[in-house]
Write a protein that binds this DNA or RNA. Structure first.
Lengths: 208, 208
DNA sequence: TAGATTGTTAATCGATTAACAATC
DNA sequence: TAGATTGTTAATCGATTAACAATC
């Protein structure tokens, strides 16, 4: 709530703004103008001002924006001020690799549980729970997001289990389009698609 | 070459078309109309016909499209008919997980080499080469694509090494925007961004 | 103050959708 | 043939960019 609905294009740009502002803060820069940021990020200054116009910060004519204010505002808009409880479902190669991801180290996302059908030893200090304990776990922990890393052929069935257990948001690594109720949000990560797009661009590079 | 340049939106849709057509083939369906496909993929039939109009296949009025022809055409457009030689640079958690990815099993992408700074045992039958052997390897194997999975703080430096060694296309898993020459193509996979977008949508779900 | 930069409105651009004549 | 569906053009929609008055 708050700002009117943002376009999907703008939403997709937010994490990038956030990252650059984080960089500015880390090097101790206190203010930034749309022109500077535009140069750095390789987008138009006009777009930046337009985007920022959706939020409740304001810059100062002749000066620019306060980096910290902007950072905090975008953090708020992205909902990163409220920590999200995350579970990983599927502890194969991919799931294992995600467990140690930096985003789970105090970056707004807290990894609370790891699940798999197979029994296996703890990973990185995380116990791996059997999938049938999902519903109880979700109820008890109020999990916000599920990361789905099971083999693709099991994606649909496990997604259903997760949704039935009450999850409303899924980051989907399976190479299928999940069929979920309207009130469940899915973000897909399809590495093969990314590679195909790269292959296309590679084959169709403007020839020198 | 061939078709005029396609919009980035259309390029991004191609892998999805390809996947659905693959599904049709696998269940033995021989023809499909824009209307059916539209229903299945949840896009407008108009968009499908518009998109397909860029290619050198044609449907048949009153009938639809031949699935195999369409599949082959999109495969060709994506450049999947010419196998791409791929290397993975960085054999940490993420790199290791990628080595066994299905896309390297006869899907148009051939994993030819794995590199890391650290010495380590073979992974999944792949020898891990030291990064300083990159230039020689690329020259010898004519590698097309590099997948960059080193720790983010090393992304820029390793990207430079890879580019200097002659690579023109990078799938970048590092959480930085790579600064590469114009003639080098980069596709970013920023999982944290995906998670942030998911978090945003989750917090801003239309309330029931 | 003069210069810089915002915030916002209008112009442009391009993608998506609608419509329908052509035709299998 | 009649019905279905394409291919394509025109209409619509929305995002990006340009422009500039307001103002710090």
């Amino acid at each position: 709530m708050g700002e009117k609905t943002l376009s999907k294009e703008l939403i997709a740009r937010l994490p990038r703004y956030f990252r650059y502002l984080d960089d500015y803060m880390n090097v101790g820069i206190k203010k930034v103008s749309s022109g500077e940021l535009s140069h750095k990020m390789n987008v138009t200054a006009s777009q930046i001002r337009h985007d920022l116009g959706h939020f409740t910060i304001s810059g100062q004519q002749g000066y620019g924006y306060n980096v910290r204010e902007l950072y905090d505002e975008i953090k708020r808009v992205l909902g990163l001020d409220k920590e999200k409880k995350v579970m990983i479902v599927g502890a194969g190669n991919r799931g294992k690799a995600l467990i140690s991801h930096r985003m789970f180290r105090n970056r707004g996302f807290k990894l609370e549980g790891v699940f798999d059908i197979a029994e296996m030893p703890d990973i990185n200090g995380y116990h791996v729970f059997p999938i049938n304990e999902l519903p109880e776990f979700i109820k008890e922990h109020n999990t916000d997001l599920a990361i789905l890393c099971v083999p693709s052929q099991e994606g649909s069935i496990v997604a259903k289990q997760v949704v039935d257990a009450g999850i409303k948001a899924i980051l989907n690594f399976c190479y299928v389009d999940l069929d979920v109720p309207e009130d469940v949000i899915v973000e897909n990560v399809h590495l093969r698609d990314n590679l195909m797009v790269l292959a296309y661009k590679y084959d169709n590079m403007p020839k020198e």
